[in-house]
Every structure is written in structure tokens, then in C-alpha cells.
Nucleic acid binder design. Structure first.
Lengths: 125, 125
DNA sequence: CAGAATCCTACCTGATACTG
DNA sequence: CAGTATCAGGTAGGATTCTG
């Protein structure tokens, strides 16, 4: 595998766009929210129910940030009680695949981490 | 694209292995360190030089955690001054591709985030 | 060179209460 | 339902100093 091209990211400058982008997507809740919105638009409470342990403050904050960064849209339907639906923007959708890769990894190898030493034979390459 | 399978990750339990794994790889520095070690074993100062803004405390802490989780190895050569080389374990190497996907995304779309609104026409699908 | 140890602060996060 | 507002704490992370 050729991994040299990784270095075209300039890790030396903390404020470069790539590092800022990385900060956002390595957020605690953003990847989970994106993976949920990946299946289609979703209401606030529906998202919250699917992510155990998140508070409404954190969910709202995460969604606002995603909105600000242009990753998600927020649509309010003037019903009573209010209905608010969130959806990924085209930019947000470009993140689905990288995030899915991470979640796939977590599902596959997550159990083997943390003091459970890897068995060399189990890994590809 | 079929994204339904994302939900086989149980987001409802905060302490599930997948969420723990996700916490690790969504760490601030871990992805950068992994991408550097992806090209081969590397010495402490060499890593530090390539990641602008990281303190030795944070680099050491990150490397220790990666060691504890079985993602990296630490080899001390009894020279003077000391030489310490870090390398990815087989488990750590399985993370290279997912992380590269994220870094590729950051490089491609990072500039378009944050108040720079996306132009719909620019995105695939 | 590769760290350990210490101090200190910002902010991330949770808990709780209130609202249109 | 989908928030906002406020308070309080814990810790991630930075700066500095010292060492084999």
C-alpha cells in the first residue's frame, strides 16, 4: 500500500483546514449522529433515542455545530407540538462513507482492544 | 447505498465495546499518530516534529494509550542518548485504512466547511 | 533524546429546571 | 416535542521544570 500521500496533509499547522475538519469529525457525538442521519432525515427525539447517554444539551449543540459547518439542515414544521427534522447536506453525505469505515472497524475490532492482547494470526496482510 | 447495517452497532449502550473503540479513534491526536506510523516505525521526536502543536505530554499520553489498547508497540534501544521507536501492531494496522479515509475527507472537503456554504453542484451522487 | 512530574485553566459535559 | 438557561464538576490539555 502506498501511504506516502497521507503527508500531503500538513500536520505542522494546527489551524489548517484539514485539522479543523478533523476536529469536527473526531467529535464525541458527531459520528454517531451522522451515521443515524445517513439512513435519511430524522426527528430530534428519534435521534436522541438511538444514542444512549447523550443529553439534549449535547445533541442540540452537536446538531447546531453540524448546521453551522454545513453538514446538516434543520427543518421546522409549524405543527403543535413542534416537529423538527434534521437531514444531511450534500457535504454531510460525503462524510457517511469515512464514518461508516470507522464504525465498521469499531464493530469488528472493538472487542479486541483494551488489555485484551491481539492474536497476530487474526489480522489480514 | 445500503446503510441499514450501521445499526448493528448498538448506540444505546454507552459502554459497549464499539463505543469504547470509537472513543479511542475519535481522540484528538490518535488519528494523526496512526497516520504517521502507517508509513513505518518512527522515533518519538520524529513523530512530534510532524504533528504541529502537540506537547510531549500529549504525545506520550497518546502513545501510552495506544500501547495499552494494543495498537502500537514501544521499543527502547539502549543507546545514549536513548532511542525509542514506535510501530503499529497488526491490530493498529487495521485502523490505517479507516483513518486514511477520514484524512482524505478532511483534505478534500475541509476547506468547504465552517460558514463557507457548500455548492450543491460540487458533490457526487 | 525521551520522557516524568507538577501546576493550572478552559471547556466539555452532565444535571436540573423551565418554555412555546 | 424540541428545545433554552443556568450551575457545577471533572478532566483534557497546555506550560513549565527537571532528569537519566
Amino acid at each position: 500500500m502506498e501511504t506516502r500521500d497521507l503527508f500531503s496533509l500538513n500536520f505542522s499547522s494546527q489551524d489548517c483546514p484539514s485539522r479543523r475538519a478533523l476536529d469536527l469529525i473526531t467529535d464525541k457525538w458527531t459520528p454517531l449522529v451522522i451515521s443515524i442521519l445517513a439512513t435519511g432525515p430524522c426527528r430530534y427525539m428519534n435521534i436522541k433515542r438511538q444514542i444512549g447517554g447523550i443529553t439534549q444539551k449535547m445533541l442540540t449543540q452537536t446538531l447546531r455545530k453540524m448546521e453551522d459547518e454545513g453538514l446538516a439542515t434543520r427543518t421546522v414544521y409549524p405543527t403543535s407540538p413542534p416537529t423538527v427534522e434534521y437531514a444531511l447536506t450534500p457535504l454531510g453525505k460525503t462524510l457517511v462513507e469515512p464514518i461508516q469505515s470507522l464504525l465498521d472497524w469499531a464493530r469488528t475490532y472493538g472487542l479486541q482492544m483494551n488489555s485484551i492482547r491481539p492474536l497476530v494470526e487474526e489480522y489480514p496482510q
